[in-house]
Amino acid sequence: MFIKLSGQNLLKLLVLMGFSLLFYNTLTTPGLSQVIHPQFIWNAKLGFTLLLVLTIIQMFKTLDRRHNIACGCHHKAGQLSYIVFIGTLILGLIVPISPLGSATASQKGVKFMQAGTIVPVSLPVLPADDQPELAITAENHVKYVTAFYENNAAFIGKNISLEGFVYRPDQTPARHFFVARFEISCCAADAVPSGLFIEWDDSQTIKSDSWVEIHGKLATFDYLGNKLPVVKATQVIPIKPLATPYVYVNN
């Protein structure tokens, strides 16, 4: 038996299948952590499940002859609105997910370096003086970097190490560059670069967007009239970009 299918219903079915695929794709790539905070993965999984359910419903609806013939619905979606859905699918499925870089960092501006509310944190316990070096890792990045900016005097002379991508904010002095990681509290849309200025004599040889591991001593310096923490580097080691480039704010 020949069933006449409604073109609009078929188009909707294809769009729903596309979106299910987009969610499936995103959930299964390692890039997932570059898009959303790991805390919200269940949210994306829920979305995928509901999209599958809608796809199945739409499949029935497309094949339902009575509905197609008798539908008095005026869901005047218009042809134009499908372009929005299809365009999103093309962008989402074809352009690969890539971690945010220094171009976005300069659009967003570094955390702490501009007017705005700093969420107060309780100062972490200082490492004992005999401890040789404080390693800044993905887990303690937010805590320590915030503490360095809020109370930089307390940390002067501390040896630290940190990793991040190189970025140069406006009017960075020639001997300095900035090492940052994006801080995510919900999804990539709220990413804010957070990190420290590095002082290093050969700083011109370090390319923006490359990843480095820094070892050095904390000090303060004057940047555009603000007293900011700076790492006087003793070692700058180029490294491969980290698999999880962001740091996550724990709520």
Partner: peptide
């Protein structure tokens, strides 16, 4: 690419 990442992240969320 950064635009795409941010756009996608809002949608997924």
């Amino acid at each position: 690419q950064d635009f795409n990442t941010i756009f996608l992240s809002i949608i997924i969320e």
